[in-house]
Design a protein around this nucleic acid. Structure first.
Lengths: 263, 263
DNA sequence: CCAAAAGTGTTAAAGCTACACCCATGT
DNA sequence: ACATGGGTGTAGCTTTAACACTTTTGG
């Protein structure tokens, strides 16, 4: 199969098996060395970056599509994933053209000659925004068919992105920070067992500010969501800290109390 | 034009001018005599109730579509309207059939004979949920083309609804209550000028619990969003209360601080 | 003069913030 | 011994909750 045939079958697959008019975008947050990162892709044959996204199969739940897309970009399963807003401005994809995109993807002949009338199944997209929290070191960033590169960016060095994607990141971060105040977070971001300062550092990174060690300890223990273990790993030049782990049932309970999302 | 022709043009209009796969549902809250109400419609030729909804024109912003749908059901403009969640389970419309629905709407011949292949432009819908707050007495409930009746229901007497619409109401109410704690609400729900107890009663209705009169007064005045007028209407058998009104600029400011929705 | 609603201030409890001292370990 | 990171408690402050008496008005 030459490149155009592959594209043709890709387009037909889209038309036949995916919902038209609906897409989704992922704001994937990671944490590394005290820095908050976000995963971006570089658009095929271009210097422009944007958020990874996906589409919804006709036989697939919306949330499931988001999990699948996340898996495809990161190689990870069962992550913290949360819908935060649906974007639907008419002009949100200004400058996007299928024709041009397909050319960059390797289309040689004009589109009509392939016998696919794109306008008939694509007008414009409503996009459902999700944000995810992932463990940076476990991620294997993988470009999709429409991108050349997939990599982490420091959250405060994200360039001007295509479309409305800078807005999406801003709103995702804001929603995440608010959510942090009434939900426990960390289950999929930390190893099974972790120290209090690892957890605190995660919170500090998300919130973008320092927290008082003692107050943090009291608050988090008040949630009754952590279990302290007897193990105390030795750490160079310091007292051996306790390890903690999440009480699974309590953690789930807190999540569910605050979220009757039906995706 | 006979009924079938009207339906045909309705369907063709949907196919040609509206986004496929995307719909929206409205949880319209009203307040009357200390009761919280929600506006429901009765499905064509059926005893089943559900939320009013709408679709998005190809040339229309998502939020604009929601405003338009709200206007069509209530006759009101410029209302408080807020997106709260997008619903996308594959089976969320169980038992819904276009064929059946169109028959109830007056279709006489089988669908194929109309020359419209519904399956080609409709598979299933993702639905964007919005909630609205409206002034009960100003609303003129108007059924849409797919419903026989449109009327208010007490929030705690809502029957089993079609689809996932009971979930939607629950989640809308929960989101609204949370929002109340960091945003002023009332601008489109109360007359231009109102008394403190009217405002308090609105809050109590939304929250579903009584508030302390003195504490409420202090908190609301701390927002610095109300302006006290000199007028004091006389009320039967009681001391004349002050009238208040919202400071428009401050009210808008508080709304915008907390909402960078890009809909 | 009595019932009904409205105006207002004080006190207690809870939650959050700030802050300091001691302990274990490796160099 | 000392530098580094970890464990823990207390005091002040701010925010929220509880609560009661007085005023006006119509009947």
């Amino acid at each position: 199969m030459d490149r155009s045939e592959i594209l043709l079958s890709f387009l037909k697959d889209y038309r036949d098996h995916y919902l038209p008019s609906v897409s989704l975008d992922l704001v994937i947050f990671g944490f590394h060395e005290g820095q908050m990162k976000v995963l971006l892709i570089r658009f095929k044959g271009s210097q422009d970056w944007l958020l990874p996204g996906g589409r919804v199969r006709k036989d697939e739940d919306l949330n499931e599509a988001a999990y699948r897309s996340l898996r495809e970009r990161t190689g990870l399963e069962k992550l913290f994933l949360q819908q935060f807003q649906t974007f639907g401005k008419v002009d949100r994809l200004t400058h996007f053209s299928w024709e041009e995109t397909l050319t960059k993807m390797g289309l040689k002949e004009p589109l009509e000659s392939l016998g696919v009338d794109i306008a008939s199944f694509w007008s414009r997209d409503i996009s459902v925004g999700y944000y995810a929290l992932v463990e940076y070191t476990k991620v294997n960033p993988t470009p999709d068919i429409m991108s050349d590169e997939c990599q982490w960016w420091d959250i405060d060095q994200v360039p001007q992105l295509l479309f409305d994607h800078n807005d999406m990141i801003r709103l995702a971060l804001k929603t995440l920070r608010r959510q942090l105040s009434y939900q426990p977070i960390g289950y999929n971001l930390l190893p099974e067992e972790f120290t209090m300062s690892e957890l605190q550092s995660l919170y500090e990174t998300i919130l973008g500010r320092k927290l008082d060690r003692r107050n943090f300890y009291k608050q988090i223990m008040n949630y009754d969501v952590l279990e302290r273990l007897e193990k105390r790993p030795t750490i160079p030049a310091s007292k051996a800290p306790y390890l903690y782990r999440f009480k699974k049932e309590r953690y789930e309970q807190l999540l569910n109390e605050e979220d009757l999302s039906v995706g």
